[in-house]
Simulated assay, not measured.
Amino acid sequence: MQITAQMVKELREQTGAGMMDCKKALVETEGDIAKAVEFLQVKGMAAAAKKASRVAAEGLVSTWISDDAKQGVIVELNCETDFVSRNEAFHELIATFTNTIGPSSATTIEEALELNADGQTLADVLKEGIATIGENIQLRRFERLNAPEGFVANYIHAGSQIGVIVAVKSDKGADAHADFARDVAMHVAAMAPAVLSQDQIDADKSAAQQEIFTQIVIEEGKPANIAPKIVEGKMAKWRREVSLLDQPFVKNPDLTIDQYQKEVGGVQLLGFSRLQVGEGIEKEEKNLADEVAEQLKG
C-alpha cells in the first residue's frame, strides 16, 4: 500500500511522533492508522525505558497557587537538554504535572505519579512525553506550602530556571501584603537561604560547617587559646547568612528580612521553598560529536 504524506500528517497529529517514525509505523502496519498508533506506543515505551537511564539535569520549574491562595506547590521537571526545555511540548507537560499535583494531596513522587490527568496516570503521561519528545524526562521533586491564616505567593525567575513559593500569615489579606510577599520571594530567588530561621538549621550540617571552620583556623595557625572564639564568630556569621530572617534585604540592605516584615506590620513569614533546575545533579560532560552520535543511535 502506498503511504501518502496525508497519512503521515494524520498519524503525527494523533501521536506527536517524528515524521520518519510515523512513516515507518505506517509501512510496518500497511497503512492502518490505528495499528500504527499502537506500533508507535510500543516503540515509544521501549525507547522511554532505554532513555530513562540518561542524566536529566535541564528542565523547568513551575508553580501552582490555589484559587483562595491558601495553598501553593512548586514543581521541577527535568529533561536532558536546554533545547527541549524550551520546547512547547515540554512546557505543556510541566503544566499538566503542576496543575494535577497542585490540587491533590500528594506529598511524594510515587503518590504524584499515580494521580489521574485526563484519564491517564501521570506515570503514563511521563512515559508518553519521553516517547514523543525523545529525551529522558523526570519528575524530580515538588514541594507544598499551606497558609490557612494568610496566603501563598510565588515568583518565577526569567527562563523558569528558579522558582519560589512563600507562605505568609497576614491579618490584612493578600491584597495588603502582596508586595511584601513578592519582595521576599524575589529575595529568596536571589540569595538562596537554606532555612527560615536559625533554629531550623540541621544539627549535622551545623556540625559539619563547624568542622570546616575549625580546620581553616588551624591551617591559618591561630593561637589555640583564641581559636574556639574565632570559630564561633565564623559560625555566627554563617548562621545569619543561611537564615532568611537574618539576611540583609536585597532591595534595602540596611534592613534584615525580619526587620522588613516588622516594618511592614501585620505579616509573618511562615516558610518558603526555592527550587533551581538541576541543582545538585552531577551533569555528564559530553562533546558535540558524542551528543550527535547518541542522538543518531536514538
Rank of each mutant, 00 (worst) to 15 (best):
I3K: 06
Q6W: 00
K9W: 02
L11A: 04
E13N: 13
Q14V: 03
A17L: 03
M19L: 13
K24R: 14
A25N: 08
G31M: 07
L40T: 07
Q41E: 15
G44E: 14
M45V: 08
A47S: 14
A49N: 13
K50A: 08
S53P: 05
R54V: 08
V55T: 15
G59I: 06
G59W: 06
G59A: 10
S62P: 04
I65G: 03
Q71I: 07
S85N: 14
S85E: 14
R86P: 03
R86N: 08
A89R: 13
A89F: 06
F90Q: 12
L93T: 13
A95F: 10
T100E: 01
P103N: 02
S105C: 08
T107S: 15
I109H: 04
I109E: 12
E110T: 14
L115P: 02
V125T: 14
L126F: 06
L126D: 13
L126T: 10
G129T: 12
A131W: 12
G134F: 06
G134W: 11
E135S: 02
N136E: 01
F142A: 09
E143D: 14
N154V: 03
N154W: 00
Y155M: 13
A158I: 11
S160L: 04
A167C: 11
V168K: 05
K169P: 03
A176G: 11
H177G: 13
M186I: 03
H187C: 08
V195N: 10
V195A: 06
D204W: 00
K205P: 00
A207T: 10
I218Y: 05
E219A: 15
A224R: 05
N225W: 02
N225D: 15
A227F: 00
I230E: 10
V231C: 06
G233T: 11
R240S: 15
V242N: 08
P253R: 09
S273Y: 03
V277H: 04
G278C: 11
E284C: 02
N287V: 06
E294I: 02
L296Q: 08
